[in-house]
């Protein structure tokens, strides 16, 4: 994983899936989620895939797909920090 994300020891909710499976996982299991564009950056990683791509908020945690070139897409959960406000702000636009 990207160094910064890895250092946060993310909880892995889904392993080695396709980006479409990751999309459906977030859509079905996370009540609050926002659509982001391909390439959207969280910490040191980009959201990779074909739209629609979703980033979820669960309490003070972020849930998002993380694609590794060799191992497929993971759905990970990390503390959201300032990113939560940034995501919610996007919806107002």
């Amino acid at each position: 994983m990207g160094g910064c994300l890895e250092a946060m020891k993310p909880e892995i909710l889904l392993s080695q899936s396709s980006f479409k499976e990751a999309r459906e996982f977030i859509r079905k299991n996370i009540k609050e989620y926002y659509e982001v564009e391909p390439g959207y950056r969280i910490l040191d990683v980009h959201i990779i895939g074909v739209p629609p791509l979703y980033v979820g908020i669960e309490g003070d945690q972020l849930v998002f797909p993380y694609t590794k070139p060799c191992h497929g897409t993971f759905v990970v959960k990390i503390p959201g920090g300032d990113e939560i406000a940034r995501l919610r702000e996007r919806k107002k636009k």
Binding site: S18, F19, E37, G72
Partner: peptide, 13 residues
């Protein structure tokens, strides 16, 4: 599948 995801990203950005 990751390759497809990267290609889709490039097509978008």
């Amino acid at each position: 599948d990751s390759g497809i995801a990267y290609a889709g990203t490039m097509a978008y950005i």
